[in-house]
């Protein structure tokens, strides 16, 4: 039994179907990436796991079904959500942003805050700064930090590198790797940047117009010439 099992998942916005029959599994302690273009359904997939959309199919965490649960209950079971960094609370300080994440795990607030500030010392320095004044990279850190405040065993990270400088992407990758290796977090990440995703994830899924087109390890997908052309932007290889 995998840690996260997504089975026959379809998601709808009103009558429009955004995901169709998606099957994805994530093992405990693994980093899995979903790659896809704009509109492929990446964010919808994460929204569906956390209970923000109406879905058909089943999502199970450690064997327990999450389907139909309220978002608050899903977060309490250990799923943290770091949405795209545009989804912060812009006119609140870094600390207040993090504190909103601390509701479900309020007894561990101190410990989690320490973890976040240890991971991103820059946030500790700027804890009283309002997030709309921050750089993209800092905001991405706040988004990740807010998810970590919920005491997760699995975090969903939505397009962490979108629009960020390469150097900052490396920082984010380092942080995610550290969370995975030192803190044992299972991570499901969505990306348009396939190279970034491959450097991180042990397993990847390609999502196109709401369906999983292809799945495999980084090596397997990297070797596929068609995919290389479509997603990796470099058909000649290094």
């Amino acid at each position: 039994m995998a840690f996260l099992e997504i089975e026959g998942l379809s998601a709808y916005y009103g009558k429009a179907r955004a995901l169709h029959n998606v099957d994805i599994t994530v093992e405990k302690g693994e980093i899995v990436a979903i790659i896809g273009a704009n509109g492929a359904g990446k964010s919808t997939l994460l929204d569906s796991i956390i209970g923000l959309t109406s879905i058909r199919g089943d999502v199970r965490l450690d064997g327990d079904s999450l389907t139909g649960l309220a978002s608050s209950a899903i977060v309490e079971r250990g799923v943290g959500y770091a949405p795209e960094r545009f989804n912060l609370f812009p006119y609140m300080s870094v600390l207040d942003n993090l504190m909103v994440g601390a509701y479900t795990a309020r007894h561990d607030t101190e410990r989690n805050l320490e973890l976040v500030f240890d991971l991103f010392p820059r946030l500790a320095e700027r804890r009283n700064q309002e997030t709309y004044t921050q750089s993209g990279g800092e905001r991405q850190m706040v988004s990740l930090g807010r998810a970590l405040m919920t005491n997760p065993s699995l975090i969903l990270v939505d397009e962490p590198t979108i629009g960020l400088a390469p150097k900052v992407c490396l920082d984010i990758a380092a942080a995610l790797n550290r969370l995975n290796q030192e803190n044992g977090l299972t991570i499901l990440i969505t990306e348009q940047n396939a190279n970034f995703a491959m450097s991180l994830a042990s397993h990847l899924h390609i999502l196109e117009t709401g369906e999983v087109r292809m799945s495999g390890s980084a090596e397997e997908l990297g070797a596929n010439p068609e995919l290389k052309k479509a997603y990796f932007g470099n058909t000649h290889g290094p």
Binding site: G51, V75, N87, L88, R146
Partner: peptide, 23 residues
């Protein structure tokens, strides 16, 4: 209090508040 922070957060991005596990 936490309540005040959460209410302001709702005003800025209600979905995100839900995604952070708040009812």
């Amino acid at each position: 209090s936490r309540l005040g922070t959460a209410l302001s957060a709702i005003g800025m991005n209600e979905e995100s508040v839900r995604g952070s596990g708040l009812d």
